[in-house]
Design a protein around this nucleic acid. Sequence first.
DNA 1: TACTTCACTGCAAACCTTTGCAGGGATCAC
DNA 2: GTGATCCCTGCAAAGGTTTGCAGTGAAGTA
Lengths: 387, 387
Amino acid sequence: MTVATSDEGPAVPVTIRDVARASGVHISTVSRTFSAPHLVNPETRVRVLACAEDLGYRPNRAARALITGRTHNIGLIIADIANPFFPPLIKAAESQARHRDYHVFVADTNEDPTAEEELVHALAKQVDGVLLCSPRMSNSLIEQLSREVPLVVVNRQVTGLPCVLMDVGQGARAAIEHLIGLGHRGIALLGGPRSSWTNREMRRAAATAARTGGAELTVLGPNAPTETGGLAVAEQVRRSGVSAVLAYNDLMAIGLIEGLDALGVRVPQEVSVVGVDDIALSRLTRPKLTTVATPTGAAGRTAVDMLLQQDIESPRAARSPGAGTALGVRRTTAQVMLQTDLVIRDSTGPGPHARPARPLTASRGPDPHCPAGPGVPTAATGDAVAS
Amino acid sequence: MTVATSDEGPAVPVTIRDVARASGVHISTVSRTFSAPHLVNPETRVRVLACAEDLGYRPNRAARALITGRTHNIGLIIADIANPFFPPLIKAAESQARHRDYHVFVADTNEDPTAEEELVHALAKQVDGVLLCSPRMSNSLIEQLSREVPLVVVNRQVTGLPCVLMDVGQGARAAIEHLIGLGHRGIALLGGPRSSWTNREMRRAAATAARTGGAELTVLGPNAPTETGGLAVAEQVRRSGVSAVLAYNDLMAIGLIEGLDALGVRVPQEVSVVGVDDIALSRLTRPKLTTVATPTGAAGRTAVDMLLQQDIESPRAARSPGAGTALGVRRTTAQVMLQTDLVIRDSTGPGPHARPARPLTASRGPDPHCPAGPGVPTAATGDAVAS
DNA sequence: TACTTCACTGCAAACCTTTGCAGGGATCAC
DNA sequence: GTGATCCCTGCAAAGGTTTGCAGTGAAGTA
């Protein structure tokens, strides 16, 4: 059975040449009509625009990029799109990029370092720069790739590269101090992926805070940064005999609570649990999750700004040998640290060493040991502290 | 303070020409080394490859696309990346695409039809085709855009275009029958976005099923397809006096349960709630959510397959007038309908008209009224039914 | 020896756009 | 009337790659 092509055939690609022919001008005039309208006679301009509109012409961005060296795209490489930590970051980055007339292409790597590298290569020539979010590959590889395409790294510190960091060290410290203040002395840290910078920072800060506060910290992990990862470690947590847990992220915390529940361990009555990220979901579980809020939106916006800032200066400078001072000015490599906030909800409660004089409900309020602001679930401020 | 550029400067772009010069052959030979290796002398080949490796050469995909007409990229336009319904679909599409040597670029539209259109235009020349997931724009606009770039539509029926649909009608019917079987007679349907095809299908099927089963269906909405949307409608649900609710999706169902809880209405004792999608989260809330599982992974894979299939045939055919039969064979526009599954968990229970003879626990098992298979939370099968 | 075949490689056009340069009128001042 | 100025437009090269065509030399055949 043949289907008649009643409507116009599929996609006859209309180029700048077609518009030029239709409007009786040279292609360069058409080009200028779009990229430098002030250089073309108003009458000609309207005619060309009319023809273009009529034919449905749209400039081929790839061809344009070939010659200008700027695609007006930026790439966003994400460790795991299914982790609710990332969507707010993605949305913020997209909105910021859109304001500056850029488009964002997101790619998911499934926490796979090989896929990360491959994607950077694939994106390199199709975007003006790449945001690497929570990368799992090695620092040296990142540095190497940064010679291929401008890079901004999020959630990882790489010397010599622009980075956007969240102060999870401070967050972990606040969480541990909060738990100690509630009377917990045996605390477990549920580690995340081994290659995660965040993981290392948390571990370092938590260890220091525990030592200072006279608590014992048990590190369990590495674990997958998902509900499943948290669920799987529940039995281990119970056996370890701790009364409080700081999890690598909210997803793990939620999985852990679920797992403990299945084992008959009540949260927060028997074990307190703190997460990290303050994903939307953490307000919806029961008990509502106490967590370290990370300024994901601010991180996305900042990262885009940093990328575009370093990008704006001379896209094709590398080609002209004498550009700028002969010494080869290196791009600025600022690193930005964003603040985190402890948000106290219902998954933490008094521990074995709680001071009995203190009424139970008071322990839910802002904790004197906790330097983070009031525990209201405001969006994290994300004040930037340049380093 | 000047920073010395100790390591090699940033990104000297190395082209096919550099490789040709280094290995002493013509650029066309280098090109063939990569795109048609069998045409070049093995000795030459290894020499060229060595030089390319040495210089760090990578073919510029954009330039290649300019001439071959194939970018080996596909675009994925998503209504809301923060909706956990989508990530599994994205991941499945990505994995399927990777197997066929394609890369996927994801873009989020924030449920904004204007952004959708703009993104299709932006992507058109940079990808070989676009997957439109749960689009919010009009059918006619979609048809129009499909002349600019090959399109596959997910979760929307557009005549003349390849579509991947999930049988939410069947799912809604199963859900309503399940509720009626439990003894509910007053049932509310929480509608989603007005422009959603899924929304219309559900409404139609639910109305029929309710009428057939002798129940009264109240439609509330449209609502935002998010937790907030569900939360906001809780009061309205309580006032309406229904004993059961079918929500547009799981997110809304979860928000609703939260909202009812805040009003002191217990689920499922006083009100039963059914969601749609079976997102990972629906297993983690308390009560665990009864829901209509949609085969998101299968949808992503199928959509990629359909796109690549229609794409494979003569990318530049439109340019050569005499290609194939002169009659201009239209692309095949198959529509695929994927099956859904009712998964019974803890958010539904007996209603006011429950038969007392039947023991309470039995109502949790597979329901005789429910044509969907056993209520085990298996991954949806996603058997394709071509229409 | 002369001719065909074959494997390999170079040549140059093509893809679509941007942009420095120069030319062509028209306007203006002198 | 002549020359300078200015606005607009065309010309052509460039960007990195692919690919049909033709050319080269060697091997094989008669």
